[in-house]
Nucleic acid binder design. Structure first.
Length: 474
RNA sequence: CGAGAAGUAGCACAGCUUGGUAGUGCACCACGCUUGGGACGUGGGGGUCGCAGGUUCGAAUCCUGUCUUCUCGACCA
């Protein structure tokens, strides 16, 4: 039996999630609440995410920098909305050795302030613009309730902070980066996601507006997965980021920030995984193929090495499991770790010149000739798995997508099954608050080119100005 | 932050009521034998019982505090 039992998804989704995290060795608890040990399997996924996103960021002209971990209190206080928004969850350093600090230092919950302070002293001319900086780092937010990957006090993320000479250019950047997140979720993580505008109530502290990428988990709960903020000149005025423009006049820069986190690992689990363990889409799987030797004899070993070389040559990541565990153990272990494709080489099949290939997502096995062009066969199979996983996720999301025309319908849907609920909204925060009384249902985003579902607000019945997606969130 | 539950070996748990030598299964190590869905045999190693106080001759067990985890709710830019 497995030493890490997996709870059944249908019986208790929350416990199932945690058991997958532990069974697949993605992370473990530490002695500090909300601060996780990200284990090799989990960190490898994060590295793969970094690799793909970082390449995309750089293609779009961004460069990486590293800002300090600590922010002096006076610096953090300069932008009042930001301070207010983050105050309840900032952790402070008050001692240096045994000596009390004259000014306490915040452990960064986000780095707008540090970037702004840096830009303040480094921008003089329109020729210095734009600055397209990003950093990969850890941040800390003193959350009360924590869950592995979904909500931790310390987490890893990337935060892009850019400044521009024109409003239009900054707005284009904001839009461009939310598109990157949408692309990443749909194409790489096989998680169908929707982008839209946050309502003012849900907008990032200090931003003029926030664009968000929203995904729906298997249980119908929404997960915010990547946000991109447009700051206009709010921060540049608070932090005095001025430059001389072409007309020899002083002007403030236009600013953006955008980020996504290790929370996406939680999203991967909650969209794709099953009762046998993790299921990873091939494009994000750190190891795409495992070759399992049944007896480990010379013939099996030689063929495995040949396959490995051919697959590696084609850019497919692969490893051979030649431990002396029983075949069943190796199969189960590869499954719990979510390896997309498993090649089983055994003496029995080899006698007939055959091997067995198993795909993780469906757990189907196929017996094929051993002299097949393994690289092109596997390459095609990985693409099929990627697409099938995406299609299944789309179907699941669509089956959990509803329309509501009034509060009665809204309540009926939420009582039965949470999901994405499309409904019109008048734009009044009072209605948002009333809807929130229904099981904590909140606006996910305003769909900008969405259809008109109704003429009236789902809550108050006044003219419905916006097509909003509502849902219960993590 | 509120309500509830839990913390004993890597994992799952028993022991606690009624204080008296730290247990079981799996995992781990060695050897042997095996190998197509989590094999088997023999032997072996591993624990300040979450932490800190208290009661007691003596605490995993009783008392107080605290930390951590889980579930449900409140909160969540």
């Amino acid at each position: 039996m497995d030493n890490k039992a997996i709870v059944k998804k249908e019986e208790d989704f929350a416990k199932w999630y945690t058991s997958i995290v532990r069974a697949a060795h993605l992370c473990d608890y530490s002695s500090v609440k909300g601060c996780m040990v990200i284990e090799p399997n989990g960190y490898a996924i994060w590295e793969k995410m970094q690799e793909i996103l970082d390449k995309k960021f750089k293609e779009l002209g961004h460069v990486n920098v590293q800002m300090p971990l600590l922010i002096p209190e006076n610096l953090l206080k300069k932008e009042s909305d930001l301070v207010e928004g983050f105050a309840p969850e900032v952790a402070w350093v008050t001692l240096g050795g045994s000596k009390e600090l004259e000014e306490r230092l915040a452990i960064r919950p986000t780095s707008e302030t540090m970037f702004s302070d840096y830009y303040h002293t480094h921008i003089n001319s329109y020729k210095d613009l734009p600055k397209l900086y990003n950093q990969w780092c850890n941040v800390m937010r003193w959350e009360k309730e924590t869950r592995p990957f979904l909500r931790s006090r310390e987490f890893l993320w990337q935060e892009g902070h850019t400044i521009h000479a024109s409003e239009k250019e900054a707005e284009n950047e904001t839009k461009q980066m939310i598109e990157v997140y949408r692309w990443f979720h749909n194409e790489i993580l096989a998680i169908p996601s929707i982008t839209g505008l946050k309502t003012p109530k849900e907008t990032f502290a200090g931003a003029e507006y926030t664009l968000t990428n929203e995904a729906l988990m298997y249980n119908g709960v929404a997960l915010q997965s990547g946000t991109s903020h447009y700051f206009g000149q709010k921060f540049s005025k608070a932090y005095d980021i001025k430059y001389t423009n072409k007309d020899n006049k002083l002007d403030y820069v236009y600013q953006t920030s955008w980020g996504t986190t290790t929370r996406m690992i939680g999203g991967l689990i909650m969209v794709h995984s099953d009762n046998y363990g993790l299921v990873l889409p091939p494009r994000i799987a750190p190891k795409q193929v495992v070759i399992v030797l049944i007896t480990g004899n010379e013939e099996e070993t030689n063929l495995a090495n040949k396959y490995k070389d051919e697959l590696l040559k084609d850019g497919i990541s692969v490893y051979i499991d030649d431990t002396d565990k029983s075949p069943g153990f190796k199969f189960a272990e590869a499954e719990v770790n979510g390896i997309p494709v498993r090649i089983e080489i055994g003496a029995r099949d080899l006698k007939d010149g055959k091997i067995t290939i198993a795909r993780r997502d469906t757990r189907e096995k196929t017996i094929i000739p051993s002299d097949i062009d393994i690289a092109s066969y596997v390459k095609e199979l990985l693409e099929i798995i990627q697409n099938d996983m995406y299609q299944r996720a789309v179907e699941r999301r669509d089956s959990l997508t509803f329309k509501a025309h009034n509060m009665k319908e809204m309540k009926e849907i939420l009582d039965k099954q949470p999901g994405f609920i499309h409904a019109m909204w008048c734009g009044n925060e009072e209605c948002e608050n009333k809807i929130k009384e229904l099981k904590g249902c909140k606006s996910r985003c305003i769909i900008q080119d969405g259809e008109r579902i109704d003429y009236n607000c789902v809550c108050c019945g006044k003219p419905g100005k916006y097509h909003v997606i509502w849902g219960i969130q993590y």
